[in-house]
Write a protein that binds this DNA or RNA. Structure first.
Lengths: 345, 345
DNA sequence: CTGTTAGCGCATTCAT
DNA sequence: ATGAATGCGCTAACAG
């Protein structure tokens, strides 16, 4: 392996000179700078990260804590991981992936061994034990998702409550009075995921606000049961003319179930998605409120970087920043007004 | 930060003794071992990774090189990333995520700065420039996907050629004589992705082998064009009674297009998927040849670990290992025989 | 000012 | 079981 000494020798200078050329933390005459740079290029020298880190206590690495995969794989996690990795590079960081099936202990290990400068926690729950762990360790962290305590750590999230309300409001504006809201799965709700809880809250709030009849249903990961549930849902005494789907992973199944009931979308049933991934609607072009993956990824990365800078400066405890992203409605094909079926009710 | 010296002091021994207790690479009297362990626990000591690495030249990190995202995000990449991360932990490695939009230079940076012990290359192309780079750097690597040169680096892959052939063979066995094969996108084929090229080859080989008429079509990422292409495809003079889909990301769209043509699956058109993600068929329960994500992830991680061990031992150049995974057919609902439409032809 | 020397950061491992 | 050398780069203090 080629070291800074090799470069120094080849350039006929002292190792420290090479270091200064590299860091630019001191003025070096243009002459020697060129000589040194040439030696670096010729030898293909790259400073050893471990040596640097040992000296500086900075790794330029962010730990990305994915959720423990209790309910199987969620496409959204992979998407965020990749997007965050890109964002991190733009800030000069690499990303260490932690499929935190190890949970808190895994994060402890990384933090205490100094393998990262900060952590980004994904799939945050309302009362997430990882948050307390980060605070206790004094380890900088940023949350992808909003926990119960907005002031604990910096965070970013889509405003899920507003998103759910917005979806309903758009339907109401198109004339729908009987609206079904298919929330996330029971599992996610029981796990107290912020997006699940807040989406539910937003859906419930929408009824009084719009005057429409909004019936909220939880979803399930069991596709057979889900199909039955949808069948039931569509055959109440005042059947809905519109459906909001927050459980977007099941969208293809849901649309298939709707079709199986003999209903056409959107003529017989208007469908709006909430929180789908950009470019991934399961084969349909629906009106929707998309998950702002790029914005959230950029924001959480920036917040993590800021948390590192803040800690490094040892400044007085700055209140953690945050970014609550307002939902944006994408009309897609225009929302259909209530269909002929509405008359039957 | 607490260091090995702090522990030594508290335990009343020399730092080296603590080190030996930790590594177990030498016998320590039970007495002192307990004293030291207690000091470690009380102080919550964890060895600094950078110091360890500096000394030992081992990072216990694998670099995971994701494809540059030319054609947008592919769900399969995220899935593999997560699965590989889990597999790596089982081998004692952490995973550094490289969204290699930086490509070869990014890998160079990681390799030369000593941030990882080996690389796992995803989305390998037939003639992938990263392979030459790894060899030139003498950096251990394993491939997720099969390149043109089987002997360059260790690799694992689904046997895509056999998978495509198998799908066609199963349809032929159910009586289908007119089979359409919808391959991957033109983009992937032009990028010379191994799975795309080999899937094509397998589809073409299936015709002579089964005696069926197998017409091969390339797919496209443009969903409007894809729908048109499918319409055309279904209305030839001898319309197919069965369709094999390797472009599984578009499966929902494809099924929607088929439905739009007034055809029912599987009564009018039998559909088989090739290379879909486990638990992700876009809402349908189709017969299929799944992508063996867990097996491939485990294999590529093992191969990377072996490559590290081999190099560390400085053994004579062991021929790189590999694992070509035979395709497994999942019947799903039984394949329908050719429908009434066949008679019309 | 520009360049050099020396010491530090932390864990490992060979001699003693 | 211990002291000392080692791996590599950074930077404060010093010299020209």
């Amino acid at each position: 392996m080629t070291t800074i000494k090799d470069v120094a020798q080849r350039a006929g200078v002292a190792p420290s000179t090479v270091s200064y050329v590299l860091s630019g933390s001191r003025k070096i005459s243009e002459d020697t700078r060129r000589t040194v740079q040439q030696a670096i290029d010729e030898l293909g020298y790259h400073p050893r990260a471990s040596a640097r880190t040992l000296r500086s206590t900075r790794t330029n690495v962010l730990a990305l804590a994915l959720p423990r995969v209790a309910g199987g794989y969620r496409a959204v996690d992979g998407r965020f991981a990749i997007e965050i990795s890109d964002a991190a590079r733009a800030h000069g960081y690499d990303v260490l992936l932690m499929t935190a099936q190890e949970g808190v202990p895994g994060l402890r290990r990384i933090a205490r061994s100094g393998q990262a400068d900060a952590a980004i926690l994904m799939a945050v729950e309302m009362d997430d034990p990882r948050i307390a762990a980060m605070l206790e360790l004094g380890f900088p962290a940023a949350l992808l998702g909003r926990s119960a305590d907005d002031a604990a750590l910096p965070w970013t999230d889509l405003d899920w409550e507003a998103a759910a309300t917005l979806a309903v409001r758009e339907l109401a504006a198109a004339g729908h009075r009987d609206i079904a809201y298919l929330a996330t799965t029971e599992r996610e709700i029981q796990a107290q995921r912020g997006y699940a809880i807040r989406g539910l809250a937003g859906a419930r709030r929408a009824a009084p606000e719009t005057g429409a009849d909004v019936r909220v249903h939880q979803s399930t990961g069991d596709m057979a049961r889900l199909a039955r549930r949808i069948g039931t849902l569509l055959h109440g005494e005042r059947p809905p003319t519109a459906l909001v789907v927050q459980h977007v992973a099941a969208l293809p199944h849901i649309l298939a179930a709707v079709a199986a009931e003999g209903l056409r979308v959107p003529e017989d049933l208007a469908v709006v998605a909430v929180g789908n991934l950009p470019d991934d609607l399961g084969g349909q072009d629906l009106p929707r409120v998309e998950l702002p993956v790029p914005e959230m990824s950029a924001a959480v990365t920036r917040l993590a970087a800021e948390a590192i800078a803040t800690r490094t400066q040892g400044t007085s405890p700055t209140p953690p920043g945050h970014l609550l992203i307002p939902p944006a409605f994408v009309p897609g094909p225009r929302i259909a007004p209530p269909g002929p079926r509405a008359a039957n009710a």
